[in-house]
């Protein structure tokens, strides 16, 4: 038992060392390149001027992703005429299964305005690193797999800078309030006065 714990501690320290090395070396947030659900190249830059709601997950996700996407969609709908100033993005952490075509069908179930984004293993890993998303493939007994991942919603302002991280667990009302607040702030900042 003592041995098992020692191994665990070693693993833990290895993981932490790894985490430190990349947490220090990379800036938080920023531009990234992926492929959108219509199979067109996508860069975050393109959305300059809009408030971006960025969410990570995968289409085989059994519970959390659908719940969160539905909440996200509800917020987008509740924005009415301001909805066009906001763009929801869903980045798939499962390059093996989530092709642009699969994502196309999936995200549009939730909201027509949502854009699904796919990429190679490396591309997705790069974006996840930038936004400090923790994810890991989890093999199942039956040969399939799931993907464990952290669940936060990232709010990116009209200049492409990360503006807030909404922790998982807060109710949709909160997200709506925050989005409205950010939109009002952006309107002040962006209008030449």
């Amino acid at each position: 038992m003592g041995r098992g714990r020692r191994i665990l501690m070693l693993l833990l320290s290895a993981v932490l060392t790894l985490a430190v090395s990349w947490a220090d070396s990379e800036e938080l947030g920023g531009n990234f390149s992926l492929t959108d659900h219509n199979n067109r190249p996508f860069e975050l830059h393109q959305l300059k001027g809009k408030l971006v709601l960025l969410f990570f997950g995968y289409t085989y996700c059994p519970d959390i992703c659908p719940t969160e996407l539905a909440n996200l969609s509800a917020v987008l709908n509740a924005l009415d005429d301001q909805a066009e100033r906001v763009q929801g993005l869903f980045v798939s952490l499962d390059p093996g299964r989530d092709t642009p075509a699969v994502l196309h069908d999936y995200v549009r179930h939730f909201n027509r305005g949502l854009v699904g984004l796919a990429g190679s293993e490396e591309e997705v890993a790069q974006v996840a690193r930038q936004y400090r998303v923790d994810y890991r493939r989890h093999e199942k007994e039956d040969g399939g797999y799931s993907i464990d991942h952290s669940v936060n919603l990232y709010l990116i302002d009209s200049q492409g800078a990360l503006s807030a991280v909404v922790p998982y667990g807060l109710p949709p009302q909160h997200l709506l309030e925050t989005v409205r607040g950010l939109l009002a702030e952006m309107a002040d900042k962006d209008s030449p006065s």
């Binding site: 959390i64 400090r132 998303v133 923790d134 464990d148 991942h149 952290s150 669940v151 936060n152 991280v165 922790p167 998982y168 667990g169 807060l170 109710p171 909160h174």
Partner: peptide, 17 residues
């Protein structure tokens, strides 16, 4: 911040909210 157990950190965030 990367916690995703619904009855863990998110619960405390929810209750604090």
């Amino acid at each position: 911040s990367t916690c995703s157990d619904v009855n863990g950190c998110p619960l405390s965030s929810h209750v604090f909210y």
